[in-house]
Design a protein around this nucleic acid. Structure first.
Length: 495
RNA sequence: GGCGACGUAGCCAAGUGGUAAGGCAGGGCUCUGCAAAAGCCCCAUUCGGCAGUUCGAAUCUGCCCGUCGCCUCCA
């Protein structure tokens, strides 16, 4: 397959360094605030990448870290009166719940920075010895001038960076570009012993260098893929390279640097500092998680994408078509599974081999399901079709569930009966209001439908339509079919 | 100021030299008491603008316009 490599700024053939094994390190969350959809987009992409690499037959080892001690979580804790650890546990717990709901596979390793203090310190000591770091009054800093290739990943040159007005001048640093590897303890802040330099905590960046090496690159010859959001290219990944590569046997730190495009909201980057986002947990609760995934699959992973509420509705509609075809094919299936279905596998692989072109992959699925109706005639073909469809949906992480085989949602809210009574009031059907009082929601719906069908049999269309309107006001969509009337509940969120 | 991405139908979006995928919305049809759902069909002579290269350009080059990102914390 081919994959875009930020390091070379080109699409290259992806070949694992070790035969059959792919090692991936993705920079995870710094849980200092609620996660948002932008985080989800990034991690959802890497989830699909993992799944596809597995389809391709590789054994994938996936590491996604948690930067659990950092200025941000410490500051948040000061504001809320918690410990930084409380803050991390709370926000990271919410994040993991959302990831699970979105169908992200468990990570092989999920290292916390504070569990790797020893490795971090060992790395800092080596950097000092090698002349890449120095001790200053408030901390230990990385000497950017000591690393000639600084700026290569992000295509920046040091002079331009230094002339930039945005760099804070700090007297204790040799150079404004130098960054903290270790921050000496201040009162009230978490700290760890570090002889002989002084107690303190790690700076941002060093934890990833240390953990990536500890978990995936013990011999210092590099890993296959290092990833994250595009906003991490500079300075985070640039700094990781500067920290890691001077100590390695054989750079580069990562063969492929892979970055996901950022998510915009209102055409501005989704970020806590801009205040323009809805917490991920809320969005996941309000929408079908599979529709959220589908939405991201529609757009190239490297492209900047603008999120709108409408776009997720459109994605849900599209996914509903796939679900419908899946249901149709499943019902027609003979139970035996022939080996292949023309074209689908080849088209999916061609799309995903091409730098994970998920949008083209979805087009292949739509074209394929458009032929479902004609495949229904042949049960064995339908069996193969549904098996292959299911397989590819799983590769994309949109795994068909039992619910796909049922008519749309039948879980009813508890207050439905009183809603119905209010709606019926508007329909001037007093007797019915009394009749459904105290009934469980399902039975209440059935009771009203029975009355409606009686009216229909008597060709009393106005009563029939009034009852239908009352049901619709409460989210009950009905469908008069040849074999009687079916109904489903459409939740307020998706209506 | 430096670096970079993007601009394709009403909306989203694939496509980076060979004559515009796909989705949503919209329209038509089938079904239906009417609807809804579902299925089928239709829906860009044209790719921000202007020049240029080429037998041929959405795709390459130049200039211009617009939007966004990174350069500070950021997925």
């Amino acid at each position: 397959m081919r994959l875009y490599n930020t390091r070379t700024r080109s699409v290259e053939d992806f070949v694992p360094m070790r035969d059959g094994d792919v090692r991936i390190y993705v920079c995870g969350l710094t849980p200092s605030a609620q996660a948002h959809l932008g985080h989800a987009r990034s991690f959802l992409f890497f989830d699909v990448l993992r799944r596809y690499l597995k389809h391709r037959g590789y054994r994938v080892t996936y590491v996604q870290n948690v930067t659990d001690v950092d200025d941000r979580s410490i500051n948040e804790a000061k504001e809320t009166g918690e410990t930084y650890r409380d803050v991390v546990i709370r926000y990271y717990g919410e994040f993991k719940d959302a990831m699970r709901t979105l169908g992200v596979m468990p990570y092989d390793y999920e290292p916390y920075a504070t569990e790797y203090i020893a490795e971090i310190q060992a790395m800092i000591a080596k950097l000092i010895t090698a002349g890449h770091a120095y001790v200053a009054p408030e901390g230990i800093y990385y000497r950017v001038a000591s690393f000639a290739r600084y700026g290569e990943l992000s295509n920046r040159n040091v002079e331009e960076l230094e002339s930039g007005a945005r760099i804070e001048v700090d007297e204790q640093k040799e150079d404004p570009l130098d960054f903290a590897l270790w921050k000496f303890a201040k009162p009230g802040e978490p700290s760890w012993l570090f002889e002989p330099y002084g107690d303190g905590r790690p700076g941002w960046h060093i934890e990833c260098s240390a953990m990536a090496a500890a978990l995936l690159d013990a011999d210092g010859t590099g890993i296959d893929i290092h990833g994250g959001g595009a906003d991490l290219i500079f300075p985070h990944h640039e700094n990781e390279i500067a920290q890691s590569e001077p100590l390695m046997q054989r750079p580069p730190m990562a063969n492929f640097w892979v970055h996901g495009g950022l998510l915009l909201f209102d055409n501005r980057k989704m970020a806590k500092s801009l205040g323009n986002f809805e917490p991920l947990a809320d969005l996941v609760a309000r929408h079908d998680p599979q529709a959220i995934r589908w939405l991201f699959l529609q757009t190239g992973y490297r492209k900047v994408m603008n999120f709108t509420e409408e776009s997720i509705g459109a994605a849900a509609q599209g996914l509903a078509r796939i679900k419908s075809a899946y249901r149709t094919l499943s019902q027609a299936s003979s139970g035996v599974t022939p080996s292949s279905v023309e074209g689908l596998d080849a088209r999916m692989e061609a799309a995903l081999d091409d730098d994970m072109n998920t949008a083209a992959a979805l087009a292949a699925l739509y074209d394929f399901t458009a032929r479902a109706a004609s495949m229904v005639e042949r049960p064995s073909i339908a069996s193969a079709a549904v098996a292959h469809l299911r397989y590819w949906l799983e590769v994309l992480g949109v795994t068909p569930t039992g619910a796909w085989l049922e008519e749309p949602a039948t879980t009813l809210p508890g207050q439905l009966v009183s809603n119905l009574q209010a709606a019926l009031d508007a329909a001037e059907a007093d007797s019915m209001r009394v009749a459904i009082a105290g009934l469980p929601p399902h039975e209440a719906v059935e009771r009203i439908l029975a009355a409606r069908n009686e009216a229909r049999r008597g060709r009393d269309w106005s009563t029939s339509d009034r009852l239908r309107a009352a049901l619709q006001r409460c989210g009950i969509e009905i469908n008069d079919g040849k074999d009687g009337t079916t109904w489903s509940y459409v939740s307020a969120a998706s209506r």
